[in-house]
Amino acid sequence: MTIQADLSEIHKLRALSESVGDFIRYWGFRRIHGEIWTQVFLSKTSLSGAELTQRLEVSKSLVSPALSELEEYGLIIMTEDGKKTKRYSAAPNVVSVIKDILKEREAKIIAEAQKQFEALDKIHQKRGDQNSLLETTRLEELGQMISLAQFALGFVIGQSDQESLNYWTEEAMKAQSE
């Protein structure tokens, strides 16, 4: 490592990277994506693949494809240091990147759920409550949940990046103090 750090900082950084990795697995990424992104995002300097493998104590074959994928998503930016070594820095506007991912993936997932719901609801309406296998009230509630998810996602995506970050940070701080 180019910057000397004590072992406790290195271990705590690795533990945080692993936690972020666990968290973003729920978003459809792999744990290594979160681990790498956390290291790159928090680093004072850009990092090479070799430095990341050392920091995370993982193989190059695990890090290399993950770096390419994070670069494709726009979460990290690759530069060369003049010695053919690729170095990685975090994208300057993470909120914008997250919103793009939400538009690309989650919005499509919710839209597909809405489409499937409407098809089922149409059949349910045609058959009538008496002849259907479905509980009408619960079907309506599910439709409302899907609509709420679409609304909430649209709300988050529709806010300006700084407005989003400030608003959600403020709300999170309020929730923590309660």
Rank of each mutant, 00 (worst) to 15 (best):
T85V: 08
S68T: 13
L134V: 10
S164Q: 04
F29R: 07
E35H: 02
G158S: 03
V156P: 02
E18C: 03
I109K: 07
A152D: 02
L153F: 07
Q130R: 14
K44T: 07
V97P: 00
I3K: 10
S48G: 04
G154N: 07
R30N: 03
D121T: 09
L70F: 00
L134Q: 09
S147Q: 04
S64W: 08
K122L: 11
L52D: 05
L67T: 00
K12F: 13
I77E: 01
E106W: 13
L52E: 00
L13T: 11
I98V: 08
I36W: 01
A113S: 11
N93H: 05
Q130P: 05
G74S: 04
V58C: 00
E118G: 08
S46C: 09
V58L: 02
Q159D: 08
I76V: 04
M78Q: 09
L47T: 07
L165G: 10
L153P: 02
G128A: 01
N131G: 08
R25M: 04
T79N: 08
A107N: 06
N166P: 07
E106Q: 15
P92R: 14
F151N: 10
S147D: 09
Q144S: 09
Q39H: 10
W168P: 05
E71N: 04
Q144P: 02
T85K: 02
E171R: 05
